[in-house]
């Protein structure tokens, strides 16, 4: 007999749904009071399933909308200025009154984004992975919760607050030590390092926790020191998870806007010196959006498009690293 899962009653002898029989069976069992029957009959399972499915496919629709609107808004810049003049030019001199007369090359900001992200990972990845290993292996019991909670608190601090902290404390400190303005990619990387630590720590910790206890115990039983266990057993076994954690941290660093905008100095120049003012893609968008229109605005959207492509590519890499397993953050 054909039977739908989860529905033990409510079918007549031929296997067709019969709401009356359903009611009758439930009443027989004496549970009519705990289950509001009229509601059940009015909302059959298939209808509910359909409605829930529509709601969940809204997510797909939203991703579609984001792509369509960012893409369509950046088309004018790519069309009227040319692909080459946008992506392979370092000259950014917008013309507010006559947008078409300006230059809109984003290469300098692309450079800023890539270098600050690398800087953030050089500083932040060891901190994040190290903290995760510490919580998993080294911390005394009373300290485990404290460190983990601390990392969660860092994750919750709004980016404008971290930015203000960087602007009022880190930038003057850097200025004093190096005898420069203090603004630049180094300050941005410092601030970003702080912001990627929570992502990297929580996800690396999860990866370390997923390593079977037996392997760990076997290593210790063979007389391995703690460091030998960590470096030859735990880290290799959780390598994919940790790589995914670092890539997601990278995602965060690439997309962070306000905190970086406050400390990077917002100059329009291409530079490889971490102590001179420059911009990233995100900070240029925020700085210029207010006064932009026409092709100028469209060029800002093109930078948004680059960010969108970056994070889509990174998320696909992460999912591949985790073998298609969905992320849980």
């Amino acid at each position: 007999m054909h039977r739908r899962s989860g529905r033990l009653f409510g079918e007549n002898r031929l296997g067709a749904p019969d709401p009356h029989l359903f009611l009758y069976d439930l009443r027989e069992m004496g549970i009519s009071r705990s289950v509001r029957l009229s509601r059940i009959v009015k909302t059959p399972d298939n209808f509910v399933k359909c409605a829930l499915f529509i709601c969940s496919s809204l997510t797909v629709f939203f991703v579609f909308l984001v792509i369509v609107f960012i893409l369509s808004s950046s088309v004018p810049a790519l069309k009227e200025l040319g692909f080459k003049n946008v992506f392979f030019s370092t000259k950014w001199s917008p013309n507010v009154s006559a947008p078409l007369k300006g230059n809109y090359g984003i290469l300098a900001f692309l450079n800023g984004t890539i270098l600050t992200t690398i800087g953030a990972l050089i500083l932040g990845a060891p901190l994040g992975v190290g903290t995760a290993v510490f919580i998993d292996e080294y911390a005394p019991v009373w300290l485990k919760g404290l460190v983990f909670r601390g990392v969660e608190i860092i994750a919750g601090i709004p980016s404008v607050v971290i930015g203000w902290f960087g602007l009022t404390l880190l930038v003057p400190m850097i200025a004093e030590i190096t005898n420069t303005s203090g603004y630049g990619m180094f300050a941005a990387s410092l601030v970003l390092a702080l912001m990627v630590v929570p992502t990297i720590t929580t996800l690396s910790f999860e990866a370390l926790q997923a390593v079977p206890e037996d392997i760990h115990d076997a290593s210790v039983a063979l007389g391995a020191t703690r460091w030998q266990t960590v470096s030859r057993v735990l880290l290799p076994a959780s390598l994919r998870g940790i790589a995914a954690a670092v890539i997601l941290g990278m995602c965060r660093a690439i997309g962070e806007t306000m905190a970086v905008q406050m400390v990077i100095g917002n100059a329009r120049q291409l530079t490889f010196n971490p102590l001179t003012r420059t911009s990233t893609l995100t900070t240029r968008i925020v700085t210029d959006m207010g006064e932009s229109h026409g092709v100028f605005r469209s060029a800002l959207f093109a930078q948004g498009l680059v960010l969108l492509i970056f994070s889509a590519v990174l998320i696909i890499i992460v999912r591949a690293a985790l073998k298609g397993r969905a992320l849980s953050q």
């Binding site: 968008i285 994070s311 992320l327």
Partner: peptide, 11 residues
């Protein structure tokens, strides 16, 4: 869902 969760807020 993963894509949406990892998009930068400026986007």
């Amino acid at each position: 869902i993963d894509t949406l969760a990892s998009l930068p807020s400026i986007v």
